[in-house]
């Protein structure tokens, strides 16, 4: 089952990348916010890439998985804060986030993954809005009023711990999710799942004829990607911000960001989302200073430019350059 260790060397650049990022955040005063934002973008890209990059299917409703994940953590804290569970509550929140996003991915996947190409995209485009309107329309979990649970956190953990949780540990978990996403990507790439996904991305009919149960492998990638998104929502949004509003966590805007990151870095590569996340994160941060409100207007034509002119993305191009050199073992 397991491949030889050298097959997993590409995890080294990932580890080094996140290590340096984390180190800078810890060492350079006043930069932690930026660094944690970057980690969020890398994680978002990595999780999104696991499905879009590896299968060639685009899920326009992807942000819904982050949204339900956020609610998973929120529900746990909001309803359990006075049960004396302590930090177990966070664990329960993470589990709930994973469960919610799994359930949603199964429900969406049951319909959408039977469909090919464009029809898949059509099926997913309303998922985030649909879910938002369900929560608002049926007044689930306070409906459009959202849930604010900073007070609950203070009661449950005490002021100090609650602060540390949202100011620091939430971001550390984001780093963890980012790394986990990279590990999962590499594991899949190096095992049968990855080969099945490559085959179906290139030619779904030919893949079926080769004996690949395409629906099964698409579902594996879809669920994995959804769970990672759920965990990301639970940490980067719920735990960090200590509130959740349906209009925020289902905003399509985040799907756009995920697409940009993956394309900038290179769809279907391991290092792409990290490179893309860093490029996007830094330029967004800078653009927010020099040109507030213009980020998407600048990045949307860049997406088109990448698709038409450089479909392989940064890491895709780099990969070709290092082909045949000792570096090729590390850059995928």
């Amino acid at each position: 089952m397991m491949r030889p260790v050298r097959a997993y060397y590409p995890i080294l650049p990932v580890l080094i990348g996140y290590g340096i990022l984390f180190g800078i955040g810890q060492m350079v005063p006043g930069k932690w916010q930026l660094i944690s934002q970057l980690a969020f973008f890398c994680a978002l890209g990595q999780a999104f890439n696991l499905f879009m990059g590896m299968t060639g299917y685009v899920d326009f409703g992807y942000v819904a998985f982050l949204g339900v994940g956020t609610y998973g953590m929120a529900v746990s804290i909001y309803y359990l804060f006075d049960k004396g569970l302590g930090l177990t509550m966070i664990v329960i929140g993470m589990i709930l986030a994973a469960v919610f996003s799994t359930l949603l991915s199964l429900a969406v996947g049951a319909v959408a993954l039977r469909l090919r190409g464009a029809y898949f995209a059509i099926a997913t485009i309303g998922v985030n809005e649909g879910f938002r309107f369900l929560i608002e329309g049926a007044r689930i979990w306070n409906g459009s009023d959202g849930m604010i649970f900073s007070r609950h956190m203070k009661t449950a953990f005490g002021r100090e711990t609650a602060m540390a949780l949202s100011m620091k540990w939430a971001d550390v978990i984001v780093f963890g999710v980012a790394f986990l996403a990279a590990v999962m990507t590499l594991l899949y790439m190096r095992n049968k799942v990855g080969y099945a996904l490559t085959a179906l991305r290139e030619d779904e009919d030919a893949a079926k004829v080769m004996g690949i149960n395409v629906t099964r492998y698409k579902l594996i990638a879809f669920i994995t990607s959804a769970i990672l998104a759920g965990l990301l929502g639970a940490s980067a949004w719920a735990l960090k911000l200590t509130y959740v509003y349906p209009t925020d966590v289902f905003a399509i805007h985040y799907t756009v960001e995920a697409i940009i990151i993956v394309l900038l870095g290179g769809a279907g590569t391991l290092l792409g989302p990290i490179v893309g996340g860093l490029i996007y994160g830094v330029s967004k941060y800078y653009l927010a200073i020099v040109l507030p409100g213009f980020q998407l207007m600048i990045f949307a034509p860049i997406i088109i430019m990448i698709i038409v002119l450089f479909p392989e993305g940064t890491v895709g191009i780099l990969k070709k350059r290092v082909f045949g050199t000792p570096l090729e073992k590390f850059i995928i």
Partner: peptide, 14 residues
């Protein structure tokens, strides 16, 4: 197909 989906999507954003 992915390419045209993303391009028309981006056109909308622009």
């Amino acid at each position: 197909e992915l390419a045209t989906l993303l391009v028309t999507f981006s056109i909308g954003v622009i």
